[in-house]
Design a binder for these strands. Structure first.
Length: 422
DNA sequence: TCTGGGGTCCTAGGACCC
DNA sequence: TCTGGGGTCCTAGGACCC
């Protein structure tokens, strides 16, 4: 989708069309909705933390782009209008454009809120003209259903399609096949390859490799030498436009997390109360997300970012999966005790990984009950998961404290409560 | 007043097991 | 009495993506 968040906002505020608009910053008071005609804040009036998540093409003309700090963006384009993000609305429009595409081509890989891969192999018309008419049809259907434009790249694989989709943005349609690689792909910067980020492209540049063509010419041995067997070999393949990854229509989530950057840095001791409340809140939100999505997780982790932006993580794996805020809070609290807490913090996060489906765990618990009745002394790796399932289905005493707030955590200066950890 | 929030995957070392 | 080889799991950090 083209400048997705900003484009969705322009559907609501059509009178802003043609103006530099950026999305980002803190959620403000909800008065915006009751008085949409009121004076909208300008970038120059913004004070505080945050980055731009999306900028209209008019704003991009000033050098403003997503990921840029708002203060820096304000210096470049002080007159740009600033809207806070409304993720509920973006998710709604996301579902809508994906449904529009599915009407025509149902084999879709979700790549986040504003991007998809589509496998067109089984769409007959793709073979007529390389897919140009089909691409136009997809774009038209999305616009018809959502009023939004998108950019499409139709090629033999995902790697090339991703690059191609960006060649003609916004509202683009690019059709390429392998014969076009030399003329259309090789002149591009190596950074355009999905998987070559700022670090890798800087290292490539240090080797005198700027374009994808130069990367394609580089001896594979050099790349493997510099970047390791796996990544080095992949770089070579990618530069030649080779990619055999399938379009994956479904995948299970690996982790669920919540994190927050504070308006002002907080000190672990002096701001202990506030941090503790924030910490508990993050745990409750994660627990909520887990339950809503139907997962439990065994690995509980925390993430801290200090004022100097260095980041540390700690995690702990529990014997059984949980979606209980209290258990998550307790485990996260134990992680916190393993981290230095002298410097001020700018961010705190809580993560739950090693997920499994809550219903399958419950299912397993049932069959485990039956199994343990019928077979005594069965011992193998499977025993643990069955046992885990039992505990997950029927939380033991440890899950009893009703209010996570009562737990005396985020308190590294206190010795751990007796018997709380081993 | 630099630098969000939610993710995935990879690497590498150590513990532990057979 | 000088130290194998293979495998899995756990943990921490980092690159990258949307």
């Amino acid at each position: 989708m083209d400048a997705f968040y900003a484009s969705v906002e322009l559907l609501r505020y059509p009178h802003l069309r043609g103006l530099p608009v950026v999305i980002g910053g803190r959620r403000r008071s909800p008065e915006r909705d009751s008085a949409p005609q009121a004076v909208l804040p300008r970038l120059r009036d913004y004070a505080g933390r945050g980055v731009i998540t999306t900028a209209t093409y008019e704003a991009r003309a000033f050098g403003v782009h997503s990921g840029m700090g708002l203060m820096k963006a304000a210096a470049l384009c002080p007159e740009a209008l600033l809207l806070p993000a409304d993720f509920d609305e973006y998710r709604r429009m996301s579902r809508m454009f994906k449904a529009a595409v599915a009407e025509i081509a149902p084999v879709i890989e979700d790549r986040g809120i504003d991007e998809i891969y589509i496998d067109l192999t089984d769409c007959d018309s793709v073979h007529d003209d390389g897919g140009r008419a089909l691409g136009a049809q997809l774009k038209a259907r999305v616009h018809e259903r959502c009023g939004l434009t998108c950019s499409v790249g139709i090629t033999p694989n995902k790697l090339l399609s991703k690059i191609a989709s960006e060649l003609d943005k916004p509202d683009g349609l690019t059709v390429l096949d392998t014969r076009d690689i030399g003329s259309r792909i090789w002149p591009l910067p190596a950074r355009r390859i999905n998987g070559i980020g700022p670090k890798a492209s800087a290292r490539l540049e240090a080797l005198g490799i700027r374009t994808i063509g130069e990367l394609a010419e580089a001896p594979p041995t050099l790349l493997i030498d510099q970047f390791g067997r796996s990544y080095g070999a992949w770089l070579h393949e990618a530069a030649h436009g080779r990619d055999d990854r399938p379009v994956v229509t479904y995948s299970e989530p690996r982790s669920i997390s919540r994190e927050t950057t504070f308006e002002h840095d907080l000190h672990p001791r002096r701001d202990r109360e506030r941090l503790s409340a924030i910490f508990t809140n993050l745990c409750e939100k994660v627990a909520d997300d887990l339950r809503r999505k139907g997962y439990v997780g065994r690995t509980i982790g925390i993430k801290l970012r200090y004022e100097d932006f260095t980041t540390v993580t700690r995690d702990q794996t529990l014997p059984e999966g949980t979606a209980e805020a209290t258990l998550i809070r307790a485990a996260a609290g134990r992680c916190l005790k393993r981290v230095p807490l002298e410097r001020k913090l700018r961010l705190l996060g809580v993560r739950v990984g090693a997920l499994s489906r809550a219903d399958q765990i419950a299912q397993l618990a049932k069959s485990s009950l039956n199994l343990e009745e019928s077979t005594a002394g069965y011992a193998s790796g499977a025993t643990r998961s069955r046992t885990a399932a039992l505990h997950a289905a029927e939380p033991g005493p440890a899950a009893q404290p009703a209010d996570a707030r009562q737990l005396p955590l985020f308190d590294a200066l206190k010795p751990p409560p007796t018997g709380s950890c081993g």
